[in-house]
Amino acid sequence: MSISMFMSEYKCVAVAMVMVASVFDASAQSSAVDEIARYRAQLQDGNPAELWEARGEDLWKQKRGPKNVSLEGCNIGKGAGVVKGAYAQLPRYFADADRVMDLETRLVHCMVTLQGFSYADATRRVFGSGSNRSDLEALTAWITSESKGVVMNVALNHDKEKEAYNLGEKMFFFRGGPHDFACSTCHAESGKRIRLQDLPNLTEKKGAQLGYTTWPAYRVSQGELRTFQWRLNDCFRQQRFPELVFGSEISIALTTFLANNANGAAFNAPAIKR
């Protein structure tokens, strides 16, 4: 979804408000903003992410793949099969793979090493679209839901975790592409907006906590549950960069940078967003 598309969604609300408040003044805009806040509050009534969570729990427990085993032997950081609270400590270094991994890359690792899927098969559909559902999004929905309310605590103990954080920070400020955009173009100052969309300042604690702890999210405008790998992928599309490779070193580095910056806040996803 492009920036322009999400603007038009807000414009529907905004235009309706202009018709009511036909005279332009600051109040027309603040009432449009209030209206959006009301819309967001209404969304909180029910979250279709639960459908992804239920499917994800089944997928975790089912015997699947060429080796016909479940993922219950998968160690996502707190020991084999331990799901509760695990996401609030990711990404982290895993000695068996000798690299820092986020939840999605760790799940793929387990699908390959435990269940016997090829890497290509395990990553064939990392982002779902309509009837082409993504198992990885479902698994991510369920596992992240098991960290709801858990305080974020992403450690930088291992050298590779520190390296990932530093690289993520550099990438955050890396300008490129025809528009000269970096992550920081939109996310390094407080109180800024694109159209009427508030932008979290991800370089300070409060903004990073607000931004990071509300992904994955069910996106009403797309009818899909989206993971943090998707969030980064789509940011770079809008930055006019080439496509971010799923599970790539930069994707893990940026996630480490942002997740660590969110430490201390209660994890609060899967969320629901416009």
Binding site: L167, K170, M171, F174, R175, G176, G177, P178, F236, R240, F241, P242, E243, L244, V245, S248, E249, I250, S251
Partner: peptide, 22 residues
């Protein structure tokens, strides 16, 4: 770092890898 960055992206349509050359 630049090598790692380039290895983390793939070209897609009009967005080629040279967009990462600053």
């Amino acid at each position: 770092d630049l090598k790692t960055i380039k290895a983390s992206f793939k070209e897609n349509g009009q967005a080629k890898l040279d967009r990462l050359d600053q």
